[in-house]
Simulated assay, not measured.
Amino acid sequence: MTTKGPTVRTVLGDIAPGRLGVCDSHDHLFIRSPTLPGQELDDPEAAAVELGAFAELGGQAVVQWTPWGMGRRLAELPELSRKSGVHVVGATGMHQAKHYDPAVLKGAYDGLARLFISELTTGPVRAGIIKIAGAYHRLDRHAEHVLAAAAEAHHATGAPIGVHLEAGSAALDVIGALSERHGVPPGSVILGHLHRFPDSRVHRQVAEAGAFVAFDGPSRAHHATDWRLLDAIAALAEAGHADRLLLGGDTVTASARSTADGPGMPFLLGGIRPRIERELGPDLATAVFVDNPARAFAVDWRS
């Protein structure tokens, strides 16, 4: 009996990892939250313009980390992907409790793992990643509940788990909970926002454990660690962990888009990639934008 091997599950279907290409490993085309009133990403035309600008700079894939219940508009992603020529990976999962109406949240707790599994394996548009979130320097009760459901869904499907780390904190707690308590291999885990917690020792420990280290969200107005980004990348590469690095834009507000006041999705390729190529070398840039995403998001899908 033969198997098709690892594939990346995009909104247009499964593709071979080698077809993913230059990838923004964490971003948002659509997102809505009560914590961001008036800044929702809910305009398909604006999303298409942003995706087109990314494609013009050589972008070939975007992983949208917007989970269930946050206006991800999963059904509209295939058309955006077709028109732009950019592969799009969608997400299931659940963010921090503050992003949901309490009544909706309470009703969703029962059968959460079944919801994740269903969205990964059924329907015309399937998710290709599970998005969860920690709390600041800890895993609160909500995070523990969602993490357990994500682990169950991973074991049922093989799907990778992407984790929002609040201010980049609690990385080792998350790895410990997923791998030691729930048996999720670290290689199936992507820890986001570690650039916001610029502790190179923690970064190395995460990489040594086998998880992927995501530096995502460059040049937001309220981030004070952008100037450390290349040093953080260089430190991991010099420690032998270039194969664990991912980069993403994490655009979460309308004003952060390149068509508004922010650097947006294209900045990864127009601003960050040239600096990596010039200062750290083209091989490292290829690893971060092409080779590593192809491994991080490829799965031997179980269903």
Rank of each mutant, 00 (worst) to 15 (best):
R138M: 12
V213Q: 09
G176S: 11
A209W: 09
R141M: 10
G217Y: 01
A170H: 06
A214V: 03
A224H: 15
L172R: 05
A177H: 14
F212V: 02
E152H: 11
G210P: 13
P218H: 08
S188K: 09
T157Y: 00
G162E: 07
I161E: 11
R201G: 11
G162S: 04
D173P: 00
A211T: 04
R201S: 07
L191C: 05
H203P: 02
R204K: 12
G187Y: 01
A151V: 09
A207G: 04
I117D: 01
L120M: 03
I130H: 04
D173W: 06
H195T: 03
F197H: 15
I190K: 05
G111K: 10
A113Y: 02
H182Y: 11
R126L: 07
V213G: 04
A148S: 15
P186K: 06
V213I: 06
G210I: 06
T225L: 06
A153G: 08
L112E: 01
F215R: 00
F212H: 14
H193G: 03
V184F: 02
I190E: 04
H142S: 12
R181V: 03
G210V: 08
A177F: 14
L115M: 09
I190M: 10
H137F: 06
G168H: 09
W227R: 10
Y136C: 13
A170G: 07
E180L: 14
G168P: 11
T157A: 01
P186N: 08
G111Q: 08
A149H: 13
H222I: 15
E180R: 14
A167Q: 11
A224Q: 13
G158I: 03
Q205C: 01
R220D: 11
I190A: 02
F197L: 08
H223Q: 07
P218S: 00
H142M: 08
A149K: 12
A127C: 09
A171S: 12
G128S: 08
I161R: 07
A170Y: 13
F197D: 15
S219I: 07
S169G: 01
A209Y: 10
A127W: 06
A153C: 09
L112A: 01
G158Q: 06
A127V: 08
H164N: 05
S188Q: 11
A133V: 09
A211P: 02
W227G: 10
D110F: 02
H142F: 15
D140G: 06
A150F: 03
G192W: 03
E180P: 06
A170N: 13
S200Q: 14
S200F: 13
T121W: 08
A170S: 15
L115K: 10
H222T: 15
V163I: 13
E208V: 02
A177N: 10
E144F: 12
S188D: 14
I117C: 01
H137V: 05
L120Q: 05
V125I: 07
R196N: 04
P124N: 13
S179F: 04
V184N: 04
R196F: 07
L112P: 00
I117G: 00
L191Y: 07
E119T: 12
F116V: 08
V174K: 02
L165S: 11
V163F: 00
A207P: 02
S188T: 13
A149G: 09
H182A: 13
I175W: 07
H203L: 07
V174D: 03
D110H: 12
K131Y: 04
P185G: 12
G134R: 00
R181E: 05
V206W: 10
G158R: 00
H222V: 15
L147D: 02
A156V: 06
